[in-house]
Each structure stands twice: as C-alpha cells, then as structure tokens.
C-alpha cells in the first residue's frame, strides 16, 4: 500500500479534540492531515492525491462538516472517498441526516478508540476493494476498445497486406495484431510458399 493510502483527513475545529484524534491515529501508524474547518478540508481535497479516508466533525466554522460532505458527494470528484462523521450529535435524526448526506459511517463523540480503529480499518478495506474494482473496470474498458478496433474495418494493402494503423503508418499484419491483442507469433512456411520459394526442398519433402 502506498504512503498516501494511510493518510486520513481530519476536519475538526476544537483543538483538544483534534489533538486527541491526531495523536491516536499517529499511534496506530496512520498519517493524519489536519483541517481546522470545512473550507480548509475542501482545499486539501483539491490536491492531486488527496487522502481517501475522511473523518469530519459536524459543526465547524466557515463550512460545517455536513455541508462539506454534501459538497463532496454532489461534485462527483474523480477520487472516491470513505467518509466517517465523528460528532457529539447522537440523535437518530442526526444519524439519518448524516448518512443520507453521504456519510459511509457515523460515530459519536467521545469516541471509543477500539471502535474508531475498527471503523477506520473497515474504511480502508472498502477503499482497497473499490480501487481493485476501478482497476478491473479500466482494464476491461481497454480490452473492449481493442476488440472494437479489431472488429472494425481495417485498411489493408492489396499487394503486401500491411495494415494502416491508427496513426496512419503501415504495420506488418503480425505486428498490428500483436500490438492490439497481445497475440504472440511463431513463424513457419506454408506448403504453397515452400513450393514457390524453395521448390527443390518442396520436392524433397513431397518425396518423403
């Protein structure tokens, strides 16, 4: 797993709660990135490789965690995120609102360290599965594109049988197929070509 895979974005305005989370996550081997409010967290998410697991407080200055959550889910960002709401708001209505807004998990403060750790682990497990799935989908899309190319009409030279590739150059048939399908070729001589290019040897073979 890469280093950024262990990073966790913590958005919490209260310094004491923030320190408690930061020290606890560090002790478990994670790399917490800290934001003091929702807007600061949003800025961090604009990075090229932002943390994929987020722990958000509900009530913060500038931008509340719940509003940040809605912003993330409505913006369809390229990366997928696993978001845990960590808040003192513990009513059933709040939990429903948090999950409806797009939270993957909901924990109430003060947190039980064992529970938080278990839920963070679940988050990383889900992110890992998601990454594997995304990779498989990309591979399948690529394969489908190759098949479509092979199934389409190929411009082929009537004499030498070279194929015009996507960039306008003419490739040998075998190199074109190898490039687009991953097929490997072994070279031999068919009886007709043997007759044409090596008639003596063809006679000998026929005699045997």
């Amino acid at each position: 797993m890469k280093i950024q895979d262990h990073s966790i974005l913590v958005a919490e305005d209260d310094l004491t709660s923030r320190t408690a989370l930061q020290l606890t996550l560090k002790k478990w081997g994670y790399a917490p990135l800290i934001a003091e409010d929702g807007e600061a967290a949003w800025e961090i998410l604009q990075d090229e490789t932002p943390p994929r697991l987020l722990i958000l407080d509900w009530m913060m200055p500038r931008l509340h965690g719940i509003d940040l959550l809605r912003r993330i889910r409505s913006n369809k960002l390229e990366s997928s995120f696993y978001i845990i709401m960590l808040t003192t708001r513990d009513s059933t209505e709040d939990i429903i609102e948090g999950l409806d807004a797009g939270a993957d998990d909901y924990l109430t403060k003060p947190f039980n360290p064992g529970e938080l750790r278990a839920r963070v682990n679940v988050g990383f497990r889900v992110l890992g599965l998601q990454a594997t799935l995304e990779k498989r989908i990309r591979e399948l899309q690529k394969a489908v594109e190759h098949i479509q190319t092979l199934q389409g009409i190929l411009p082929i030279c009537s004499f030498c049988k070279k194929i015009r590739n996507d960039t306008g150059y003419w490739d040998q048939v075998e190199s074109y197929i190898a490039k687009h399908s991953g097929t490997r070729f072994s070279h031999g001589i068919c009886p007709d070509c043997l007759e044409r290019h090596y008639p003596d040897f063809a006679d000998e073979v026929r005699g045997q």
Partner: peptide
Amino acid sequence: RFMNDAEIACGVVRVFLTDT
C-alpha cells in the same frame, strides 16, 4: 479513551490547559 497511553493523555491535557 486514550488506551491508557499516558503520553497521548498528557499531550491532550496540555492542549486543553492552553486552549480552553
């Protein structure tokens, strides 16, 4: 809450004493 880790507890208390 801090898994009986005195170092973490003390670190949090120090912040509380300054910030609250």
